[in-house]
Computed example of a mutant assay.
Amino acid sequence: EKIPLTLIRDGHAPYLTGSMLDEYIASGLQSDHETCVLEEGREKLQKGMYLYMREGITERNLQTLIPLATPCTSSRCCFCTDDRHADMLVTSGHIDDCIRKAIEYGCEPEIAYKMASLSAAERFRLDDRGAISPGRVADFCILSDLNNCTVKATFKKGTKISPNQWNPVQNEISQCPFHARIPSVQEILIRGRGTARVIRIQEGQIGTTAEYTQISGEDIPDIKRDILKAVVVSRYHPERIGVGLVRGFGLTNGAIASSISHDSHNIIAIGTSDDEILRALSTVIKHKGAMVARSDTKECCLPLSIAGLMSELPYENVHAELTNLHRITDACGAIADPFMYLSFLALTVIPEIRVTTKGVFDVNMFSHVPIFTDT
């Protein structure tokens, strides 16, 4: 019912090919930003889709896909940065970073800049911008270095913008539902033993794989095998609490928790003990949304006062707090940028296996399944 409401329809279609892709396109979807495989991207372009080549924090697909950007295809190719936290925006940049990397990976500069400007504008039917020509809005940058995309000056509607000219509009913060409660130890216990479904995160990718491991609930966490407990607490319905197992975060002590958890944005946590998980969850709930990292000796918190998803703080402060969070996770042995992997752990439309407030979710079967296969 929603698809006909707009003429611009973006999709999420990782690993979709063949007749299933045909059906997906025929339903009205026009683009994809989840493509991870070269031949998959080639097929989507051949079938008339727009291809957004993504380079986020943990979803790094640009090097794989950029060979598809040619003079013939560039009008259907754009860049995508889903997702980047404020620290990466400060240290690496945004679309400018995609331009630099595309050129580094062998893309012609003219094609890279077209993807970042005209191709994107025309895709979204912003016909009054995207190029410097009569009748178009004079939004543009002057560069001092083409290959490094070094911005010398920025113009908005023909007027030069000074670095300190931006003043954010002060709006009243919208209050969103946040009815979460701290679970009890009993509610997050894993009972049973046998062959368990374990969510395996993939470094540098959004997808996960299902691993099947012999384990007992009493042995969780299994630090030696890097198998940790994942807990999802509903922010809307206090009674809904789900538990699963995850491998790949690398934590040797402490816990992390966040209220950024696509797409429902329930609270999600992983940790090396039930006590640490519950303490991290408690801090998130106390602030009605936050990113929290705990070690054996300290805790760091970035409150997210806007719907539990965004901070009111200036970006410099957000950057500093994210740095502090990562200092703790690094000291605890975690994978780089663990909060981004955590945010996708409950995303039930991306294969292969996830965890929600109802427990483990098999994306291929599109149904919830028990932790133990013989349950």
Rank of each mutant, 00 (worst) to 15 (best):
residue 214 Q to E: 12
residue 225 R to W: 03
residue 196 A to R: 04
residue 249 F to N: 02
residue 204 G to P: 05
residue 192 G to F: 12
residue 204 G to F: 10
residue 261 S to G: 05
residue 222 D to I: 05
residue 224 K to D: 14
residue 249 F to Y: 12
residue 237 H to M: 11
residue 181 R to C: 11
residue 269 A to V: 09
residue 254 G to R: 02
residue 255 A to G: 01
residue 201 I to L: 09
residue 240 R to T: 07
residue 190 I to P: 00
residue 238 P to R: 11
residue 205 Q to M: 13
residue 208 T to V: 07
residue 271 G to P: 08
residue 250 G to N: 03
residue 226 D to S: 12
residue 227 I to S: 02
residue 252 T to E: 12
residue 284 V to F: 00
residue 286 K to E: 14
residue 283 T to L: 13
residue 210 A to D: 07
residue 238 P to I: 11
residue 180 A to Q: 02
residue 264 S to Y: 11
residue 202 Q to N: 15
residue 184 S to N: 14
residue 199 I to A: 03
residue 276 E to R: 03
residue 267 I to M: 00
residue 238 P to E: 12
residue 226 D to M: 12
residue 271 G to I: 07
residue 274 D to W: 08
residue 274 D to E: 09
residue 189 L to W: 03
residue 185 V to D: 13
residue 237 H to T: 14
residue 182 I to A: 05
residue 272 T to E: 01
residue 287 H to Y: 14
residue 212 Y to T: 13
residue 230 A to R: 00
residue 268 I to N: 02
residue 204 G to C: 06
residue 204 G to N: 10
residue 278 L to G: 08
residue 253 N to D: 01
residue 266 N to D: 15
residue 222 D to S: 10
residue 286 K to V: 05
residue 263 D to R: 13
residue 218 E to Q: 15
residue 278 L to W: 05
residue 222 D to M: 11
residue 281 L to V: 10
residue 216 S to A: 15
residue 201 I to M: 01
residue 211 E to V: 06
residue 194 G to T: 10
residue 205 Q to I: 07
residue 240 R to E: 12
residue 278 L to M: 13
residue 199 I to P: 00
residue 203 E to Q: 13
residue 278 L to F: 12
